[in-house]
């Protein structure tokens, strides 16, 4: 396990430098004026950063207010009895609900669950799998669509949330099958 982890860490630390060297190297071989072209492309970075600000403010403020109001706790209380009937632990429910809204929030909930129940408990494993297999959907949509000025997301949010729900259910089913209850 130690070796696997160090191999993974090694791959992670090599990926970006390798990509930079390969791109710049091949570019130079093909006669691209690498420095000039790099600067020309990089110029846009600032515009993109500034362009996403209004979209990010809109979505993060709404999510921040939602979390601070205690609405999440209310939702948990509402859904818990239903999910208990299929054996889904109520403790892991805040994790499932917060995951699409806030990455740091979900990470906090996961750490807390692991601390109270243990990393190798059913809840600990479930929370870890949920964290690893889903994304901060609202943030990604706001940033990606905002960066190109798209305001009508059409069916994008619905498709992404359906995928999130499927991922969370799959996490529960797989963890139940692999580690048992």
């Amino acid at each position: 396990m130690e070796t696997l982890q160090s191999v993974l860490a090694e791959v992670g630390s090599w990926a970006i430098p390798a990509a930079i060297v390969i791109i710049a190297g091949i570019g130079a071989l093909r006669g691209v004026k690498v420095y000039e072209v790099f600067v020309e492309g990089a110029k846009e970075g600032f515009n993109v950063g500034v362009r996403i600000i209004p979209y990010l403010v809109a979505i993060l403020v709404a999510i921040g207010m939602f979390r601070a109001s205690g609405a999440l706790e209310g939702l948990v209380a509402l859904l818990e009895p239903v999910l208990n009937t299929v054996g889904f632990p109520g403790e892991a429910l805040p994790m499932a609900l917060i995951r699409p809204l806030s990455g740091s929030g979900a990470l906090g909930v996961m750490s807390e669950l692991i601390e109270t129940h243990g990393a190798d408990s059913f809840i600990g494993r479930l929370a870890s799998t949920m964290m690893g297999s889903t994304e901060t959907t609202f943030y990604v949509l706001a940033v990606y669509l905002g960066s190109i000025g798209v305001r009508r997301s059409r069916h994008t949010l619905a498709a992404c949330l359906i995928a999130d729900a499927a991922g969370l259910v799959a996490a529960f089913v797989v963890v139940s099958l692999v580690f048992g209850e």
């Binding site: 990509a19 930079i20 791109i23 710049a24 091949i26 570019g27 071989l29 093909r30 691209v32 690498v34 072209v37 790099f38 600067v39 020309e40 492309g41 990089a42 110029k43 846009e44 970075g45 600032f46 993109v48 950063g49 500034v50 996403i52 600000i53 990010l56 940033v143």
Partner: peptide
């Protein structure tokens, strides 16, 4: 958003090279 600008510039620059090189 501001924190993203630096990384954004780095990759947009590299991607432009990759594009010009036909990668």
């Amino acid at each position: 958003a501001i924190g993203l600008i630096g990384v954004m510039a780095l990759w947009l620059g590299l991607m432009r090279i990759a594009e010009k090189a036909g990668l």
